[in-house]
């Protein structure tokens, strides 16, 4: 099932899903550096066009992201100006002050999104660490079957199950609540995160556990004091994906929340995007887009090795 790949470059081949993140994440996905003669040859006439192409492509990829930032810094007057401008002629904090104006609802949306994302991360980390410990260190009756049920959750996307999920939430009395949303989000983060955590726990050598138990450690303190520090890379990967998926999720929040005061940021932005009286407040929408991108970009740039690792172990399953 795993992708074959040359040994030196394997950043996260499925056999080492989270145990040891590669040194430089995206940089690490390279062929063996020994191929230097070829590289030297490439640095000739081809080199110039490679650089030109690269710079053009980078501009094209960065342009839309940049345009949200510049849009959020334009004054309302400049946004009305035709023909439109790309770079703001005068910098204006107007859209940003509206974003943080409580009457706009975006601040509330931001708070709700944070609550939901952090709640999902907390619950997912606890549950998937426990389950990873159970599946990774123990064999019990039905463990293979139960693990299969957990993994089945990866095959069936939650957007197809929203109709019955809304009925279940109503029956449990947690419909139209952030708690209900957290429970649903957590459930659909669990398959991937349990998969990651099970591999992390299974990678711990038995001798460590035996030694600790013989030294008189209780099972619980083995788990908390010895195992948990060892599976931190797995926990970080699980937390990153739980956060990003909860933070970015749109359809579930749109469907499962009906009270405006509970809307998460993407849902609030959707109401903004419809616009009042047919006029869209582009400045506010752009500022909202920038705010919703910030955590994603921060996580990606700061925790890149865990992020890329997670992608490869997710791909390898």
């Amino acid at each position: 099932m795993t992708e074959p790949r040359s040994d030196a470059s394997a950043p996260a081949s499925s056999s080492t899903p989270v145990a040891a993140p590669p040194a430089a994440a995206i940089a690490a996905i390279s062929p063996t550096p020994a191929a230097s003669p070829r590289r030297k040859r490439g640095r000739g006439a081809v080199g110039v066009w490679w650089w030109v192409g690269g710079i053009v492509l980078v501009s094209l990829f960065a342009l839309p992201l940049l345009s949200a930032v510049t849009g959020s810094l334009k004054s309302p007057a400049e946004l009305q100006q035709r023909p439109a401008t790309f770079f703001p002629q005068t910098l204006s904090g107007d859209a940003w002050s509206r974003l943080f104006d409580p009457s706009q609802g975006t601040l509330m949306g931001l708070a709700n999104s944070l609550v939901v994302a952090i709640g999902t991360v907390a619950l997912t980390v606890v549950l998937s660490t426990l389950a990873g410990y159970g599946f990774g260190r123990f064999r019990f009756r039905g463990s293979t079957l139960l693990f299969g049920v957990v993994l089945a959750g990866m095959m069936i996307p939650f957007s197809v199950l929203l109709t019955p999920i809304s009925v279940v939430l109503r029956t449990l009395g947690v419909s139209n609540s952030l708690l209900g949303l957290v429970l649903v989000y957590t459930t659909y983060q669990l398959p991937f995160c349990i998969f990651i955590m099970r591999n992390a726990f299974a990678a711990i050598p038995d001798e460590i556990e035996e030694a600790a138990m013989i030294d008189g450690c209780s099972r619980r303190s083995v788990l908390l004091r010895m195992f948990v520090p060892l599976v931190v890379p797995g926990i970080v990967t699980a937390a990153i994906f739980a956060f990003l998926n909860a933070w970015n999720e749109f359809l579930g929040a749109l469907v499962l929340l009906s009270d405006q005061a509970l809307f998460t940021l993407p849902v609030v932005l959707q109401t903004k995007q419809i616009g009042q009286f047919g006029k869209v407040d582009w400045g506010l929408l752009d500022a909202g887009v920038v705010v919703s991108m910030i955590p994603c970009l921060l996580i990606f740039f700061l925790l890149q090795r865990y992020y890329v690792n997670g992608i490869f172990s997710g791909a390898a399953k």
Partner: peptide
């Protein structure tokens, strides 16, 4: 085995309520 089963129970409970039951 009981410890193992106990550890996976909370996750399975959530999976049962919000995945198996909805299906």
């Amino acid at each position: 085995s009981r410890t193992g089963l106990l550890a996976v129970t909370p996750a399975l409970l959530l999976t049962a309520v919000f995945f198996v039951v909805p299906v």
